[in-house]
Design a protein around this nucleic acid. Sequence first.
RNA 1: GCGGAUGUGGUGAAAUUGGUAGACACGCCAGACUUAGGAUCUGGUGCCUCACGGUAUGUAGGUUCGAGUCCUAUCAUCCGCACCA
Length: 941
Amino acid sequence: MPYYCLLTASEKTGYKIFMEYNFRSIEQKWQQQWEATHAYRVSNDSDKPKCYVLDMFPYPSGAGLHVGHPLGYISSDIYARYKRLKGFNVLHPMGYDAFGLPAEQYALETGQHPAVTTENNIHTFRKQLDNIGFCYDWERQVKTSEPAYYKWTQWIFLQIFNSWFNRHTQKAEPIHTLIQVFEKEGNVRHECPGDRHLHFSSAQWTAYDEATQLNVLMQYRLAFLAYAEVNWCEALGTVLANDEVVNGVSERGGFPVVKKKMRQWFMRITEYANRLLEGLETVAFSDSMKEMQRNWIGKSQGAEIKFAIKGAPAEEFITVYTTRPDTIYGVDFMVLAPEHDLVKLITTPEQQATINSYLDYVQSRSERERMAEVKQITGAFTGAYAINPISGQEVPVWISEYVLAGYGTGAIMAVPCGDQRDFGFAKHFNIPITNILGGDFNGQEANPTKDAILHNSGPLNGTPMREASEVVIRELEHKSIGRRQINYKMRDAGFSRQRYWGEPFPIVFKNGVAYPVDEKELPLELPHIENYKPGPEGEGPLANVTEWVNIAPGVRRETNTMPGYAGSSWYFLRYADPHNTATFASRHATDYWNQVDVYVGGTEHAVGHLLYSRMWTKVLCDLDFIGFDEPFKKLINQGMIQGSSRFVYRVKGTNQYVSLGLKDQYETDRLHVDVNIVDGILLNTEAFRQWKAEFADATFLLENGQYLCGTEVEKMSKSKYNTVNPNELVEKYGADTFRMYEMFLGPVEQSKPWDTKGIEGVHRFLKKLWRLFYDEQKGWIVTGEQPAPEALKILHKTIQKIDYDTEHFSYNTAVSQFMICVNELATLKARQRAVLEPLLILLAPYAPHIAAELWHTLGHESSILDATYPLFDEQYVKESAFNYPVAINGKTRLEMSLPLDADNTTIEAAVLANEDLKKWLENKPVKRVIIVKGRMVNLVI
RNA sequence: GCGGAUGUGGUGAAAUUGGUAGACACGCCAGACUUAGGAUCUGGUGCCUCACGGUAUGUAGGUUCGAGUCCUAUCAUCCGCACCA
């Protein structure tokens, strides 16, 4: 480590400078120092135990970082530094999820290439991150939009494309093993996941032409092509994301959006449903997080039942999935999803017009709306009747938007007495309701119980529902009109985007059949374009780059790109070996770093990113590229930092603004005002006038000489002017203060609104800490004396608490403990090195710069980053007596100091002998004495 | 609609997991030092009450010697729901 010129307090020059806590020069100095010495460089070879601490990498948006982002980053940084002090070799990398829609949208509006804006944004992010003093090993940075990175995204995609899921072994295997099976025995033992009704023998397989064979294989591949609906906006000529569609029209321009079927790539994640579910048992995610994933996967047990259609050909059935086969006699009608293939076939001529107009209506409805708006019951009768395969009863077939095509079979058997939505539907359309619950159904609402005795159920009458399911399933299977079925709510994950700014697929189509590009051709680079407009027929912009798309006559490249989660599904593996050009990461590196020990990020990724990356990890593990099948051992969810917006009230039609308390006397418009020109709720009126030209002539109606703003907690966003830039706070108070303040706000997992106000308290704490070392007049005041027992006591209490809290991510209480400790040491005037030195090590993960500075001034040549973490010693904190609260009937009345080793009899005697107690006892006899040793005494009278 | 989370002073919160509610801070009040204070230090600060005391953890019940913590019901707010990342 190069020696840095440091002025100590004893030197005459610069004497004054180091009297005060000058965070700016300290932080700058140490950041430069750490960079120059590569202090955060991490090696893949070490004798130390490893620890992998990872942040969810950010999408580098144009808005830059706001105070919400660093919350998780600071948490993980503290943990990483702490683990390093504890003797671990810690991998703590950072990178950018650099592909994405906003950059492309911005390109569309401004003509700037996404690669350029993304690079600019990354630059801004990096500057902001560097300010806060993180211990990232930047030599391992990844950017998902770089060819050197997405080469491996494409490569992994090809591995997934070239794999199938063997349900017998529950593992992915290379597709050639499946071909061998087909050649030997057809698909008798391997049900086709893409089309269950596909059956062929080995003879048939060998007779198929190549295109047919490839089509069949596509139905097995883990990355596959299928048709699915997208939000199609004719006017914009493009496919829209769900959040670009508002109330059935495009967010931009308000044009109508309809659903359109397009050929798309998918990940067959449903094959992994069970393993994703079981894997949850092996990871340390919060219960709520596991619950969310379980619900998303949505495993249910039930039966698939085929209902014949009256008057239709015998081979046509309405197949339904139900978790309640026991209610089969309660089926009063059937409901198909409006998109169901049978709708066209079974609708009677008389009902055709009704059905058509209903289908038009449904076209305009988003899936979200269809699920959410249940109060409004809609539907249409097809005119057809289905025949209950168990009871033989004929029931009408309806279509309704509350049945979704993507879930189950896209059709349900409706049991209104047991299902509230079915009940509402039946009531609304006057469909008679069969009561199979007897007295358990009141006719006013459905009763979804499983504990009733069946009525009106033919031979099942009198059977408890829980037993009936089994009976019905057996009969269905016996008659071949249904079967036991496990169903998952989870759907295969759409993996195509009709966009430019994403990874190109390494796929070419020859006469419409998909072929993988040779691995040697990777990376398949994204061609540079100037025009970001969509291609014909809703294809992505790449379709316009004809020279890139058309390779040879009849040979076209795939023009879709991969979605945002492609690059993020495996990036944690790349950090282990980021510069490898021969493979995505060497087996040596992934074996060494293995699973991420702690993963920190927001709950918004609860299902999407976490499930996809878990799936990719499982595939790579099955194919033996890595040695573990769960990527993240432990997950910490950081809460959202909400914005706290401020409002001014403009008198309608004027440029006059009235203070909060006076606004009701006027008719006003509420306007967001930049929180950065408001102190608490006091508006800086001068800054307001300068904020925007339109406010230059603003006049104010004040209360008590002040302008008070209204407040509201909202999402932190630029448009609400409630974002707070960490840079400004770091500039004003320093990175150490900022880091500790973010942690002081409350538990990491909890969401809370941002309020800058309290930061002063943390800053004062650091200044107070500084004054333990430096006196304004005397300068450096640390001594080598033996510390007082009180000082050692508070030190060791602090060691114990900080160690525990840091290990458990309880950083808010850790910061409090630092404050308590420093307050106490200041009161004790404790200046001894033996107390202050361990305290600095404890503090180093939280406030690394000030800790490093004082450490250095204490005379250490070696870095505090690798100091030895202090050990807690109980002898210093032992107490001999405890101040017992004495309660009567649970109400604390007085306190008594008693020796801690006193036994219950002694305590009881001492308490009952207390004179002050008399007035509380009101001469009533003590019925019972409850003593909790070392805690409290309670007398019951 | 489904799923998840959160409700404690004026504010952010703490509470060893069933045992003295409000630690630590912000803010506010009073005072000291100071040429000055947006520096620093001291004291106070849940609410009601002059006080004695009473009362208090979204609301309503319950279990318990004892409940912020456990149970039941209920209300409110926030987040996610598959093409934002």
